[in-house]
């Protein structure tokens, strides 16, 4: 991997997916929803199982846990939906992302940023922008654009039956591709 795009100072929203603490740039985050009625899209891939209404806009709901090979826990009172802006095929797209818990907006000191290591990660390294440390915790900053663009380029998986969040045991297509 070439020089990672390592900003001087970076405001990040941190949230939890399964047991991992991940982060996205705070400027990308539009809002965090407590709960919103999600409508399932029958036939959609498990990664994007539904749609929801965000201020009059119909926004796809994505489950990054599937993409990152994490296990899927049933929703708890701490569960949130993080609404963020990404680009897919050059077009800006708003998506909702399921989070098991949302922490805070935090600023990481430049010194604490590290390039993603080539090995030892549970997920594809292109999906990680950099890894930051905060105290003892590792914070993994995700490359949101990359995650979603990969997804779009993939040949659609023909899932005729409805896939729900409970499909956690189903092997995801990403694992094979990684």
């Amino acid at each position: 991997m070439s020089t990672p795009d390592r900003p001087e100072r970076s405001e990040l929203l941190t949230f939890q997916l399964d047991t991992e603490i991940v982060a996205v740039e705070a400027v990308r985050v539009r809002e965090v929803l407590d709960k919103a009625p999600v409508s399932e899209v029958p036939g959609a891939r498990p990664f994007v199982p539904g749609v929801l209404n965000v201020r009059g806009q119909v926004v796809p709901l994505a489950d990054l846990r599937l993409k990152l090979n994490l296990s899927i826990r049933p929703p708890t009172p701490d569960s949130r939906i993080v609404v963020l802006e990404t680009t897919i095929g050059g077009e800006p797209v708003t998506v909702g992302v399921r989070a098991d818990r949302v922490f805070e907006v935090t600023e990481l000191e430049p010194g604490s940023l590290e390039e993603a290591p080539a090995i030892g990660l549970r997920w594809r390294k292109e999906h990680v922008r950099f890894i930051g440390k905060r105290g003892e915790d590792l914070i993994i900053a995700l490359d949101i654009d990359r995650i979603f663009s990969d997804e779009e380029a993939q040949v659609p998986v023909g899932t005729a039956s409805a896939a729900t969040f409970q499909d956690q045991q189903a092997p995801s297509s990403e694992r094979a591709g990684a």
């Binding site: 009625p37 899209v41 959609a44 994007v48 209404n53």
Partner: peptide
């Protein structure tokens, strides 16, 4: 629908209902 759902041919779009939920 967003490009993320472009592979679902059964739906041409979505709409927002009176209670704020989305119907395909």
């Amino acid at each position: 629908l967003s490009p993320l759902h472009a592979d679902v041919p059964a739906f041409s779009g979505a709409t927002i209902l009176g209670d704020g939920s989305v119907a395909l």
